[in-house]
Every structure is written in structure tokens, then in C-alpha cells.
């Protein structure tokens, strides 16, 4: 197989795993203030992601680094074209990291409450903006020989916004199930109740997204060309239905696993539709950035393939072990007042 194709697959895997893992962190961030009725509950909620969120975010940094190393032209143009949108994501990620880590470094309800608000906003914005960004990538960016002809506001088109809302709802669902799985008692019940309710708007938006995709993008043409690929969106739909079936029965862990499969298969569906583009041009296909015209040299790709094949499995192994170490559920009643993380 050509190295470009290997890297396209790796690129897709990095993004998919990032959304699957940080997706629940972002959801937790959006839900903390609403689901946590008191200091102990809010502490418990943030504690569910405390040991893992940072490691989850590194999948994003690695996706970014991999784009730089494997497809430098795409990295360069995407980041400079989407300057303001990426700046907003960046600021949010900075504020989010600080809110998680510094919230518990000082006593006092006001201090905590302010960081919780910051955490809420800085979790919502990346969830929305990653959706907007991917929606626009699916549609293609207005670029040609003269460069880029868009700005922050052209990104906020109906399809971009719809994808943004889709992401927000996906992560809300994912985060609610995570809190449900990782906590006990009332809090867990409330979280699973929320997951059961948010599933309906998620379903509606998902259906709208699938329909709108037909009109706004070219994503389906690869599937029509190779119908066996339809297995991926089919999996996404089944997994989405599975979430509801299991969540309604109270099988939260299975529902969460379904939610993971949903996010992975939604990402793969989008990326399969893009192939071989990384960013299509919406005005002149000759200026689309593909895995072939924007990649690094075969030598660099070969080295990077070696690095990835050796180290990514090791990373997955110790991250999985880390999740295992912290597998115990968290009981808000046992979070000592004022000492919560």
C-alpha cells in the first residue's frame, strides 16, 4: 500500500480516537454545572475525567503533529486559512485545561464556580467549532490559485452550523453516559436520565445531517462507487440506535460503548467520503488538497510510519491501563467537602 494511504488511515484514526476520548471530556465540561447540584457532585463529575482528560487531549496534538509531518501543505494551508476559528479553539483549549487543573487548587465557592463557568464555555466552544470545521472540510473550502476566499463568517454556513450542533449533541450524549457510568447514586441516575432525553434531538439532528450531506457535499460519491463502504454509515446508525436501547434498559456501560462506536463510525464515514481529499476545494477541484499533492516525501512517510506502528500501540496499552487503574466509580457523598479536585 502506498504510504499516503497508510497515513490517510492513521490520520482518520487519530481524529476518530480523539473525538471518542475527548468527546466525553467536552461533554462532561458542558454538563458539569447542570448535572451537579452541589459542590460535592460537581467535584465528583470533574473527578471522573481528572486522571484521563490530559492524555485524551494529546490525541488532538498528535493528530495536529501528524498532519504537519505527513501532509505539511494541508497543515500549513488549513491552519492559516482557518486562522480565527482555530484561534478560538486554541483559546478554549487553554482555558479548559486551566479550569480543570486549577479549580481545586484553592478553597472557596466563588473561585470554583468561576472556573466551572469557564470550563462550561471552553468545553462548548471546541465541541461546536470542531463540528463547524469538519462540516466545512466536508463541503470544501473556497480556495483556488489566489488562495482562500472565506473568513470566520463564511464558515458559519447552514451545513457547518448543523455539523457543529451535531457534534455538540454527540458529545453531550457521550459525556452524560460517561458520568452515568463513572458515578453512583442520584448523580448517575440524573446523568442517565439526561442521556435518554438528549438522544431524541441527537437523532433528529443526525438524520438532518445525513440528508443535508447529500446536498451540501460530495461525501456520498465514494460510497456509491464502492457500495460495500456503506457498512460504515450503517454501523453509525445502528450504534446510535443501540445507545437508546441500552440506555433505556439502564445498561449504561454498553450504552457508552455504543456511543464510542457511534463517534468512531461517524468520523470514519466522513473521512471515507473525503478520500482522497484532505480538504476539497469548493470552487475549483484542481486546487483540492489531496493526500497525494500535499504529502511529505515517501522517505519521511516511511520513517513516520515506523514511529507510529511502534509507539501508538504502546500508548494505547498504557492509556488503557490508566483507565483500568481508575475504573472505580466515584461516590459524590464520599468527596470530602472543600477538598474535591
Amino acid at each position: 500500500m502506498e504510504f499516503q494511504i497508510i497515513w490517510f488511515i492513521l490520520w482518520a484514526v487519530l481524529w476518530a480516537v480523539y473525538f471518542m476520548l475527548d468527546g466525553f471530556d467536552l461533554g462532561v465540561g458542558m454538563l458539569q454545572k447542570f448535572l451537579g447540584r452541589n459542590e460535592a457532585e460537581r467535584g465528583a463529575i470533574i473527578r471522573t475525567i481528572g486522571p484521563v482528560w490530559d492524555g485524551n487531549e494529546v490525541w488532538l496534538l498528535t493528530a495536529g503533529g501528524a498532519t504537519f509531518a505527513a501532509f505539511p501543505t494541508t497543515y500549513a494551508l488549513m491552519f492559516s486559512y482557518l486562522y480565527t476559528a482555530l484561534l478560538l479553539i486554541l483559546f478554549s483549549l487553554i482555558v479548559r485545561g486551566v479550569s480543570v487543573e486549577l479549580r481545586g487548587k484553592e478553597e472557596g465557592a466563588t473561585w470554583r464556580s468561576r472556573w466551572e463557568t469557564a470550563f462550561l464555555i471552553s468545553s462548548f466552544l471546541p465541541a461546536l467549532l470542531f463540528g463547524v470545521a469538519f462540516g466545512n472540510i466536508f463541503q470544501g473550502l473556497p480556495m483556488d490559485a489566489d488562495g482562500y476566499h472565506g473568513n470566520l463568517f463564511t464558515l458559519l454556513n447552514p451545513y457547518g452550523l448543523l455539523t457543529g450542533i451535531f457534534f455538540v449533541l454527540l458529545f453531550l450524549m457521550h459525556g452524560a453516559l460517561w458520568i452515568g457510568v463513572k458515578t453512583t447514586g442520584d448523580l448517575s441516575k440524573r446523568a442517565s436520565g439526561f442521556a435518554n432525553k438528549v438522544w431524541y434531538p441527537l437523532l433528529v439532528v443526525a438524520v438532518l445531517f445525513l440528508i443535508h450531506t447529500k446536498f451540501a457535499t460530495n461525501l456520498y460519491s465514494n460510497f456509491v462507487g464502492t457500495p460495500v463502504l456503506f457498512v460504515m454509515p450503517l454501523l453509525a446508525v445502528l450504534a446510535l440506535l443501540g445507545i437508546k436501547i441500552f440506555a433505556a434498559k439502564g445498561a449504561l456501560l454498553t450504552a457508552f460503548a455504543s456511543s464510542c462506536v457511534t463517534i468512531l463510525s461517524v468520523t470514519f464515514t466522513g473521512v471515507i467520503g473525503l478520500f482522497p481529499n484532505l480538504i476539497p476545494s469548493s470552487i475549483d477541484p484542481r486546487y483540492s488538497l489531496t493526500i497525494f499533492n500535499s504529502s511529505s516525501s515517501p522517505y519521511t512517510l516511511k520513517i513516520m510510519t515506523g514511529v507510529a506502528l511502534v509507539f501508538v500501540p504502546i500508548v494505547i496499552a498504557y492509556q488503557a491501563w490508566n483507565y483500568r487503574v481508575f475504573r472505580k466509580k466515584i461516590d459524590p457523598n464520599e468527596m470530602e467537602q472543600g477538598k474535591a479536585y
Partner: peptide
């Protein structure tokens, strides 16, 4: 990027994780 991107990606994979 062909040469400079590699150490950055390796840094993320080897060290950040």
C-alpha cells in the same frame, strides 16, 4: 514540513502521551 514536522509529531507520540 517534510523534515521539521517529523520531530514535532514524534514529540507528541513519544513524550506528550
Amino acid at each position: 514540513g517534510d523534515i521539521f514536522g517529523a520531530p514535532l509529531a514524534i514529540e507528541a507520540t513519544l513524550a506528550f502521551f
